[in-house]
Structure formats: structure tokens, C-alpha cells
């Protein structure tokens, strides 16, 4: 049992710890980037730089942004743009769409920030807002997020290839970030969205079901299929990359 057991508590704790680390990394990266910008760019961000470099707590930056302080809003953009953009890009698999959606997410943030009451972490709140922006966009495009007739039962085609000779192709230790990002781009949109939300962003199946208007079983089924598809893709990508290096 211990080999396979994966407790939900641990997942939640890991997610919170990851958020703290990401928030801290984002703040450090934003300050570093702003302090090293060329003079022309730096002029525009002068007040933002001061807001970040003087160590004003994010809570105060948020309060000032709520009052309409443009510099503090820009500071929030600098702190959170990577996370929002990464989410948009991974969910859509398209750079232009991801940039448009990042822009839309921050425009919505500007309009809605006064409603932020601090009941959750700001990053969590902004993240949820961004996910909703992407999902709304995908609905307008008519892309299938999840198929309503999906069930938790895997079908024959979802099963692994019963290829005994493939035992030397286990993935352990062989996936790098580039491979995984590339394989994710090749996933069907419905699989990709669930995989990103669950395995990368750390949402639970009940949260995903609520956001996407599907059943929890459906979310689980899509996630399983996404992982199986990724496994197949990674087993192809890896030999291709190895051959390319020769």
C-alpha cells in the first residue's frame, strides 16, 4: 500500500509550499529584473522599482493598487506576470493566445482588485481569476474542455501497450523540462487543461470539476488519459532527441 499511497494532505501542503516558494521567487526575480533594466525602460518603471526595492510588503502594494495607484498595479504585474503567463501558455499551447489572455487577466484584475478581501492568498485569487479567463476563452472558441460522456473507466485504447520489449524505455530519470513542455503541447486541449490544472497547478479534482462544470469522475478520467498520452509522447520524443544529438 505504501508504494502507491498519495495523501491529499501532502498534496495540499506541497501546493501551499510551492506557492510560497513561487511567490518569493517571483518577488526576487521581479526586483532583480527591474533593477537591471536598461535606462529607457527603467524610466517608465521608476516608481514601480521603488515600490519593490524599498521592500514594501505585497499587502500594502495591493491596498494601494486597490486605490488606483498605477505604479503599484505595475508592481503587481511584475510580481505575478510569469505565473499568469505560464499558466495561460500551458493551458492553450499558443504564445499569441497566452499573451492576449495574460493581458485580459490583468485587465480583469485591475477592474476586480477592489473585491479582493484577503480570504485567500492574493496569488491564489489571481490564479483562479486567470484560470477562469482561459476557460471562458476556450468556451468562446468552442474547444472541447472535457467530454461529458467520459467515465472513470479506462477504455481499451487507454491501456498501456502490452509491449514487453519496451521495458528498457521506462521514463524514470529521463524527462527534462523541455521534453515535458513539448509533450504537453501535443496533448488534446481537454487532456492538457486537466493535466495543467491538477498536476502542475495543484488543483484538486473537486475544484477542477467546479471550474469546468464537469463531474469529479470525468476530471479523474481525463487526467488519467492525459498522463497515459504523455507517457506515449515522451517515449517517442526522447529517442528522437537522442537520435538528433548523434
Amino acid at each position: 500500500m505504501s508504494i502507491l499511497l498519495q495523501t491529499e494532505g501532502l498534496r495540499v501542503a506541497n501546493r501551499k509550499a510551492a506557492e510560497d516558494i513561487q511567490s518569493s521567487q517571483a518577488a526576487t526575480a521581479a526586483v532583480t529584473q527591474l533593477m537591471s533594466e536598461p535606462a529607457g525602460v527603467a524610466k517608465r518603471s521608476l516608481v514601480t522599482k521603488k515600490a519593490l526595492a524599498t521592500g514594501i510588503p505585497e499587502a500594502e502594494i495591493i491596498e494601494r493598487a486597490k486605490e488606483g495607484d498605477g505604479a503599484c498595479f505595475e508592481a503587481l504585474y511584475s510580481l505575478h506576470k510569469r505565473r499568469v503567463y505560464s499558466l495561460c501558455l500551458r493551458m492553450t499551447g499558443n504564445t499569441a493566445e497566452a499573451e492576449d489572455l495574460t493581458q485580459e487577466a490583468f485587465l480583469q484584475l485591475y477592474r476586480k482588485i477592489a473585491t479582493f478581501r484577503g480570504e485567500s492568498a492574493f496569488s491564489t485569487w489571481l490564479h483562479r481569476l486567470s484560470v477562469n479567463v482561459v476557460l471562458m476563452h476556450l468556451r468562446k472558441k468552442g474547444l472541447p474542455e472535457v467530454s461529458l460522456e467520459e467515465t472513470l473507466e479506462p477504455t481499451e485504447e487507454d491501456g498501456p501497450k502490452k509491449d514487453i520489449g519496451a521495458c528498457d524505455q521506462v521514463l524514470a530519470g529521463s524527462i527534462d523540462r523541455v521534453n515535458l513542455e513539448r509533450a504537453m503541447e501535443s496533448l488534446p486541449p481537454g487532456y492538457r487543461i486537466i493535466f495543467v490544472l491538477h498536476d502542475i497547478e495543484g488543483y484538486e479534482h473537486n475544484e477542477i470539476a467546479e471550474m469546468m462544470g464537469c463531474s469529479i469522475g470525468n476530471s479523474k478520467s481525463q487526467l488519467h488519459k492525459a498522463r497515459m498520452k504523455l507517457r506515449d509522447l515522451l517515449r517517442v520524443i526522447r529517442p528522437m532527441r537522442a537520435a538528433g544529438k548523434k
Binding site: 510569469r82 505565473r83 503567463y85 500551458r90 513542455e181 498536476d199
Partner: peptide, 8 residues
């Protein structure tokens, strides 16, 4: 997947 950081 959990190790993918939002570095983009």
C-alpha cells in the same frame, strides 16, 4: 509536472 516552475 509539479517541478515545472512558472519561469516563462
Amino acid at each position: 509536472a509539479k517541478l515545472l516552475i512558472p519561469m516563462l
